[in-house]
Design a protein around this nucleic acid. Structure first.
Lengths: 221, 221
DNA sequence: GGCGAAATTATTGGCGCCAATTATGTCGCA
DNA sequence: TGCGACATAATTGGCGCCAATAATTTCGCC
């Protein structure tokens, strides 16, 4: 195992690189609208130009980034209308997980979710923005993984990634973060009570409330 | 304008080729599990090897086809579990269009839909299998286009394409075709009555009934 | 005649080079 | 000094070649 060396094939490398870039975008290492220069990515991720381009193409198909001929690739900027559509669709899909989750989740998983909720609580005051984001993601990802529908899960995470391209800052205020935190515990309560309807409702409000659209906050452009 | 010649860039050509191949798969020119040899595709679609590969990569990301390293690309075969998940997710998404459709559709569109339904009726007895399929697609595509949520539409058509990879023959019997036909008119009735709830229910049964799963047919594994 | 291994053929896949295009900087002119 | 045009630099993008891998056939041996 020491001197063994495995050469991965392109499709694997591309997928890995695409995910790395996608994560970087999630963590706001590249902001919406920002150009992704191929040379920079080559160096940053120690990949060949070819792999970089493949990965960018993949992300373009997934609509995480946008391709402009002869200009390059840039992080997708989703307009308000599309953002609202993404949110509406997320609500449809994520609500639909409730029934399966309640039916299939076990006590061990509930305990783990409680732990994740607690981790998030801690991160709200202590952690960095990216920590909060990743823990929150982990909480929902783990919860949704019990819905019993892998296709449904895929769609949800695809949509969540697309939504990142919005100019609207998620969790713009500390207050909103705390609200998210509280809602996690309400979800846990619904889960423990095996109340799928309530869980679905909570998920819906969680999505809406987590994103301050409506009352047009600040920052005109 | 006569001697003017426009060279389209790769991203355009790739997208076009990908769609052509996707359509060929929809029309069963390539069956699930069948290998797509790059040389054949080059000739069939008069494209360069590079474009073919790009298009195949795109389709692989969209899960229309599957990529096996050093073996090539083949039309995705979806297993029974995944097929059921796709159906369940389609029901969730397509049901959700009902409300928007009822709210936004106008009389002209209803007339056009009536015409499409009639076309389908004719195709049930007269037309070929692919004609039936394409007209049916047109009916639903036009109807869903009034739901007011482009993102939701994208997801639906992505899922519908993925479902084609199933071994389960859609419309296995003539009887099933006629049932689909009848249901189209029931949808029209619900639409004219502006009854979103009923439309949603009809859409759901349409999806289930159109695909003979449910009563656990045969084939254990 | 059946079977396995080696040779042959077919197919995929990695990747780098250079042309095409766009962005940037500079200079001259009013 | 402002502005447009030209020159230069930076970046993207098309594509084809050949190595790597898998499939097929052939051949020799039991």
């Amino acid at each position: 195992m020491t001197s063994e060396r495995k050469r991965k094939n392109t499709s694997t490398r591309r997928a890995m690189l695409a995910n790395e870039i996608a994560q970087a975008i999630r963590l706001r290492a590249f902001r919406p609208g920002e150009w992704l220069r191929q040379i920079d990515l080559e160096e940053r991720f120690q990949a060949t130009r070819f792999d970089v381009r493949s990965a960018l193409d993949e992300l373009a198909v997934r609509k995480t980034i946008e391709h402009v001929p002869n200009r390059g690739y840039r992080v997708a900027e989703v307009d308000l209308k599309t953002y609202e559509e993404i949110l509406a669709t997320r609500i449809i899909l994520e609500r639909a997980t409730a029934e399966g989750i309640v039916a299939q989740i076990d006590d061990a998983a509930i305990a783990r979710l409680d732990a994740l909720a607690a981790q998030f609580s801690a991160a709200v005051t202590t952690g960095s923005r990216t920590e909060q984001s990743e823990i929150n993601r982990a909480f929902h990802q783990f919860m949704y993984s019990f819905c019993g529908n892998a296709v449904l899960e895929e769609m949800i995470w695809g949509l969540r990634d697309r939504g990142r391209g919005s100019q609207i800052t998620v969790w713009s205020s500390h207050e909103l973060l705390q609200k998210s935190d509280r809602e996690h515990y309400e979800m846990m309560a619904a889960l423990k009570a095996r109340d799928a309807g309530r869980l679905a409702t909570l998920i819906a409000t969680h999505i809406i409330k987590g994103a301050p659209v409506g009352p047009a906050p600040v920052e005109p452009a």
